[in-house]
Amino acid sequence: MELTTESVQALAQAIAIVGTGLATAWGEKVIGTAAIGAMVENESLFGKALVLTVLPETIVIFGLVVAILI
C-alpha cells in the first residue's frame, strides 16, 4: 500500500472534521445539561442558555476551514 499526497491530504481533512465534530458534540452535551439544570431553577435564563449551547458550533466551522486549507 502506497501513501500518495492526495490520500494523506484526505486523511488529514477527515481527521480535522471528525475531531472537531466529536469535540463539539462533547461540548454541547456538557453545556446542554448544565443549561437545562439552570433553566429548571430559573426560566429567565433561556436566552443565555441558548447562546451558550450554540457557541460550540464554531469549533466545527474552524475544523471545516482547516480541512479546506489542507
Score class of each variant (00 low, 15 high):
M1F: 02
T4N: 12
T5M: 06
T5Q: 02
E6P: 01
S7E: 07
V8G: 12
Q9C: 00
A10Q: 02
A10M: 00
L11H: 06
Q13G: 13
Q13D: 05
A14Y: 04
A14P: 04
A14M: 10
I15N: 07
A16V: 09
A16R: 01
I17V: 11
V18S: 15
G19N: 11
G19M: 12
G19E: 10
G19A: 02
T20Y: 03
T20F: 15
G21P: 04
G21T: 09
G21A: 13
G21E: 08
L22Y: 08
L22A: 07
A23T: 12
A23K: 01
A25C: 12
A25K: 08
W26I: 04
W26E: 09
G27N: 02
G27L: 09
E28S: 09
E28T: 14
E28Y: 04
V30H: 07
V30W: 09
V30Q: 09
T33R: 00
A34T: 00
A35P: 04
I36D: 08
I36F: 06
I36V: 12
G37F: 14
G37V: 09
A38F: 07
V40E: 13
E41L: 10
N42S: 14
E43P: 15
S44Y: 12
L45R: 03
F46Y: 14
F46M: 10
G47V: 11
K48D: 12
K48T: 15
A49S: 14
A49H: 01
A49C: 07
L50K: 08
L50I: 05
V51N: 04
V51Y: 05
L52N: 09
T53S: 13
T53F: 14
V54D: 08
V54A: 10
L55N: 01
E57G: 12
T58A: 15
T58L: 06
I59Y: 12
I61C: 00
I61P: 06
F62S: 05
F62H: 04
F62D: 13
G63T: 05
G63L: 02
G63S: 07
G63H: 06
G63D: 01
V65P: 00
V65M: 10
V65A: 00
V65H: 03
V65S: 03
V65R: 10
V66N: 02
A67K: 13
A67P: 13
A67H: 10
I68S: 09
I68K: 03
